[in-house]
């Protein structure tokens, strides 16, 4: 982490090329049309944005704030991230403090953007619902999530719901080309195809992979793109499972500790990565079925409040049963 400061200075393209106006947002026409009307009247309801990653949900919310409040948007907008805040009480207090101060604009209400709202438990959402009601006259909420079904019905019924769609290949190329032009990049068409394929419709990923590729080589080819994605792939989980399958539990455990404590990954992130990797392991298919079941079991314990180190160690130990030699 010695180069912290340098990293801070890097302009991240995903941020640099984030649209600033509603008209710049790629596709999502059905949503944008309605939103334009709301913004024009400066009369917006609570809104719920649902959809896959990297298609413009957060961007749209930020753009709305820009368009409503102009230069003063920051003072009139509270950005919260449900997966960052510890518990609903923190969210509630921040909302309370924010809503209490008077608005400095002619809009008449202030905006609260709650990103990753599906990270809230249903109890927390119940509390959120009351908070929304309490401050409805002075604030508008934009809730952002991947799945609207993860949001409790009483909240859904209070919101105008906007579904953000997966972007077409053409849409993604449009975004890609904009960066390529502005940054003067040399990129092969096959590299573009590879980027789009690997990004799985996520423009944030497109921008990140492109920037990493450009940093690696002047001329971006398909190979460069694959090189970048393989370098960016977390090898730790793979190595950890590999060591366990060789019977070396002690070293596997060290990697686990490193990921959880030093790198600060969440237990869920790791257990999900483990699950993904089971398919490709060099063990019998029966063994895979067993391990998948175990993975589910320990992920469940984790979701019940289990301690990540413990539950993941227990899961990892299960792999020992299929160790060779």
């Amino acid at each position: 982490m010695a180069d912290n400061k340098n990293e801070n200075k890097i302009v991240v393209w995903a941020e640099k090329y984030r649209p600033q106006k509603l008209t710049e947002i790629i596709n999502q026409k059905h949503a944008i049309e309605r939103i334009k009307a709301f913004v024009k009247d400066k009369n917006i309801p609570h809104m719920l944005f649902a959809g896959p990653a990297g298609v413009g949900k957060t961007t749209t919310a930020l753009v709305i704030a820009h368009e409503l409040y102009g230069k003063n948007w920051r003072g009139n907008t509270l950005e919260l991230n449900a997966s960052n805040e510890r518990g609903i009480d923190v969210v509630r207090n921040k909302v309370k403090d924010f809503a209490r101060t008077k608005t400095m604009s002619d809009v008449g209400y202030r905006m609260i953007i709650l990103d990753e709202a599906d990270a809230l438990t249903s109890e927390a959402q119940q509390a959120l619902r009351r908070t929304m009601e309490t401050y409805a006259n002075v604030s508008r909420f934009i809730l952002i999530c991947n799945w609207s079904s993860h949001i409790i019905e009483p909240i859904q019924s209070r919101c105008a719901i906007f579904r953000f769609r997966t972007l077409s290949e053409a849409d993604q190329i449009k975004f890609l080309d904009r960066i390529v032009k502005d940054e003067n990049l040399k990129i092969a068409d096959t590299a573009k195809t590879a980027l789009i394929y690997l990004a799985e419709g996520d423009l944030r990923k497109v921008a990140n992979m492109l920037q990493a590729s450009a940093a690696l080589k002047k001329k971006i080819t398909e190979d460069v793109v694959y090189e970048v994605t393989s370098q960016a792939k977390p090898e730790d989980v793979k190595n950890m499972i590999g060591l366990t399958l060789k019977g070396n539990f002690a070293d596997a455990r060290k990697i686990l500790y490193d990921m959880l404590i030093k790198q600060g990954f969440s237990g869920e992130d790791i257990v999900r990565e483990i699950h993904k990797q089971i398919y490709d392991l060099d063990i019998t298919e029966q063994a895979k079925v067993e391990l998948i079941q175990k993975t589910g079991e320990y992920e469940y314990r984790l979701s019940q409040g289990g301690t990540p180190v413990i539950q993941l160690e227990a899961l990892l130990a299960q792999f020992l049963l299929f160790a060779k030699g």
Binding site: M1, E15, L62, A212
Partner: peptide, 30 residues
């Protein structure tokens, strides 16, 4: 690291978790 991530999360309008899983792997290559 937490401070660093929190700062990045603010700049990038997303959670620290997303910074860690979506940005950091690439950011290290920039």
């Amino acid at each position: 690291q937490e401070e660093h991530l929190a700062e990045l999360a603010k700049q990038l309008h997303c959670s620290t978790r997303k910074v860690r899983t979506e940005f950091l792997p690439y950011l290290n290559l920039f």
